[in-house]
Structure formats: structure tokens, C-alpha cells
Amino acid sequence: MTANIVSITGGKQSAFIDKVKEILPQGGNLNLCLTCGACASGCPATGLADMDPRKFLRMCAMGMDEEVTTTPWVWMCTMCMRCIYVCPMEINIPQLVFNARAAWPRENRPKGIRDSCDMAMRTETNSAMGTAPDDFKFVVEDVLAEYQEAQPEFADMQAPIDKEGAYFFLNQNSREPNTEPDELVPLWKILHLAGADWTYGSKGWAAENYCLFLADNKCWEHVTRVSAKQADDLGCKVFLNTE
């Protein structure tokens, strides 16, 4: 315990936590921690990298910027919000973690997430797996035809792409069309039975958002704008985000 003594001398310096407070509404309540442990009790990442949300927040509060902006723990957080849901002070720990990720040099961030974001940036489908518009169109049409035939009660089911004026714009994780095409169908069936007027877009259909998880705001904005533009161009009223 005495190995890493925290030494507090001299005047207060602006710390990482102060910068995060500035950009959050009510400062994300980041100062209000009662150290009750409700967050740490329920966080799926508690104990990983010898860290938990309460400890992370406390280290931020103590101004231990170097450690909090380098601990790999922030990449183990799933952004599930179980912490803030029960926190008596409604402290925005997920945002604190997000901004700690953003403090990492891009090249040091986890390669898997970074490469996925980069891949999404390279194609107008936003697909982190690099799926091209034509490939997606082919898979959707092929699977649809197969089910229309095999299950006569769904003979009328549609899975349109770029249908102008559809009410809902639906996005879709790339993993299904690429590796589990049958998994596309249940949602189509629900939408069909509900009588929903929906469409995929040939652009920006991929729902996975690795740029968000990479805390790369610029890229995140880019992929979001690609999807939003496609929905707007088609005249859709509601964006159904499936991720």
C-alpha cells in the first residue's frame, strides 16, 4: 500500500476531471461522489485491471491524471450505464470513461476498435467489416427470396433498400449480412407483421459504431452524418437505430 504514495503539495492545478466537467451538463455531477460503492457493486468491469468505477472516479478526483488517462480499464467498460442508473448522485461515470478514452493518443487505442473505425471510414456503407453496397444488396435480396419461398405466410414480406419516402430508416450491424444472414430475418418479420413502412439505405446502413467506442469524435460524427444524410435523402421520418 505504501508503494505508490500520492503526494499533494502546492496549488491546485487543472486536472483531467475538470476538463470533463466543463463539457458535461451540471458537470456530470462528477464532484458529488459519496463513495457508497453502488457503481462498483454492479459494474461488469469491476475488478478488471484492479479497477472499478468508484476507484477510477476517486483517482480522477485526486488529480492522478497520468494513471487515469493510461489505465487500459477504460477500454473494458461496456458503456452499459449500470453505474449511473443506481448512483444516488447520478454521476456521469460513463462520460468520464469516454473522455478518458479520448485522452489516449489515437495510435495507442485498442487496435481492434481503431481498425474497425478506420474501415467504416473507408466505405460509404459505414461497415466496420468493409461490406460494399452491392454485397449488402445481394445478400438482402437473396435471403428475402429464400424466405418468401420457404415460408408462404411471409410471401409478401419486403426488405427494401433505398425506398424513397419510407417512414422508418433502419440500420443494421454488418455482422449479420456478412456471417449470419439468417439473423436478418426475425426483425423483418416483426416489421412485416406490424405493417411498418421501412427501408435500409444503400449508404450508411451499417449500425455498428466503433468510432464512438474509440472515442474518436471526428470519425464518429462522420459516420453519423453519412447515415443521417441517407435517411434525409430518402425522406424518412424516423431513424431506427438497431445498435
Binding site: 500500500m1 505508490n4 504514495i5 500520492v6 476517486r58
Partner: peptide, 13 residues
């Protein structure tokens, strides 16, 4: 003093 949550000793001047 010891901050139990961090598991560290803290010295304040």
C-alpha cells in the same frame, strides 16, 4: 492518511 478506495497512502502538505 490512507485512501481505502484507491488503496494508497496520501500525504498532504
Amino acid at each position: 492518511f490512507t485512501d481505502v478506495i484507491m488503496g494508497r497512502q496520501v500525504v498532504v502538505s
